[in-house]
């Protein structure tokens, strides 16, 4: 059982960075950004392609983050410059990136158990015998860096505009700021984090697969919702930790459901989708934001 729990903890930590990315697009920018499904895979694909060419793991991770930025930029461009509704813009990027991911990887699946990853690096450094322990340490470190960065960033002049754009972009325009650019920047940030998550998850799972992003949004949303159940009115930093907690709790639920044979592993996505639908219905997820929005996104 402890094995199941630590494994769920490791997965929960690494996937929580995805959840934080989803939190930024869905909750802060108020955009349901479907790019996430493919930028998660993109992060994994870039990392895998780099690692099998003996690129140092840290550099591979940086490349993944950069690739995620690009994915977000493309959706931002489609949405703000070409005036495509955000939902469709995300779908277009997602669909296009599927081919890009295949190109990057060269095949549908790349095993990573024979290459040096950030986890084997870290295990070697700290003398762990299991990658799982390294993953937990790595997850905690990366999450702390991400949260510190976000709290700083969203309190800058530029960060204020990201928050404001998600709530009332007309107010942003009226204060002399191009809200289109802000939206694009926000999408880049969200997808950079999601790609980072994909990169780390692929290294932990020791493979990258072109299908691995399917359902990523719903998993991220589930984490966000679970995390917010108790922490709705708290400060931003607490809410971010709530999202991380939500991600870990989600993994625990999954591990429990599968282990106790309550749910067949193949039915997990259906189970999650129903969970999220019910949770959104029950918590009045979007409408409670307090602001009436002139146009729906």
């Amino acid at each position: 059982m402890t094995l199941v729990l630590t494994s769920a903890l490791a997965q929960g930590l690494l996937w929580s960075i995805l959840a934080i990315g989803i939190y930024i697009s869905y909750r802060i920018l108020n955009i349901s950004d479907l790019t996430s499904e493919s930028s998660f895979t993109l992060g994994a694909a870039v990392t895998a392609a780099a690692l099998i060419r003996n690129v140092p793991p840290f550099l591979a991770i940086c490349l993944s983050v950069l690739a995620g930025c690009c994915a977000g930029y493309i959706t931002g461009f489609l949405h703000t410059k070409m005036r495509i509704p955000s939902l469709l813009a995300g779908i277009l990027t997602m669909t296009g990136l599927y081919s890009v991911n295949l190109r990057v990887m060269g095949k549908a699946n790349i095993p990573l158990n024979q290459v040096t990853t950030i986890l084997t690096n870290l295990s070697g450094l700290l003398g762990f015998r299991k990658d799982r322990d390294a993953a937990i340490i790595l997850g905690v470190i990366v999450i702390l860096i991400v949260i510190v960065f976000l709290v700083w960033f969203l309190n800058t002049e530029f960060g204020f505009m990201i928050v404001a754009t998600g709530i009332n972009d007309r107010m942003v325009t009226a204060n002399g700021v191009n809200s289109d650019r802000i939206k694009t920047a926000g999408l880049m940030l969200a997808n950079a984090l999601i790609a980072l998550s994909g990169s780390l998850v692929s290294q932990y799972n020791a493979f990258a697969d072109v299908q691995m992003g399917i359902g990523a949004i719903v998993i991220g949303l589930a984490s966000v919702i679970i995390g917010e159940v108790f922490l709705r009115e708290k400060s931003f930093i607490i809410r971010l930790f709530g999202v991380v907690a939500g991600s870990i709790i989600y993994r625990m639920i999954v591990a429990f459901a599968i282990n106790s044979s309550l749910v067949n592993a193949n039915d997990m996505k259906l189970f999650t989708a129903i969970l999220v639908a019910l949770a959104i219905y029950l918590t009045d997820f979007t409408r409670k934001r307090g602001t009436k929005r002139a146009e729906s996104k």
Binding site: E157, A164, I167, N168, M171, N175, G290, K292
Partner: peptide, 20 residues
């Protein structure tokens, strides 16, 4: 509702306007 940002504080709203 149009001219201000509901989820930000009074001082944050003013600071956005201050940097116009």
């Amino acid at each position: 509702l149009m001219g201000t940002c509901s989820d930000l504080t009074i001082q944050e709203n003013l600071s956005i306007a201050k940097r116009k």
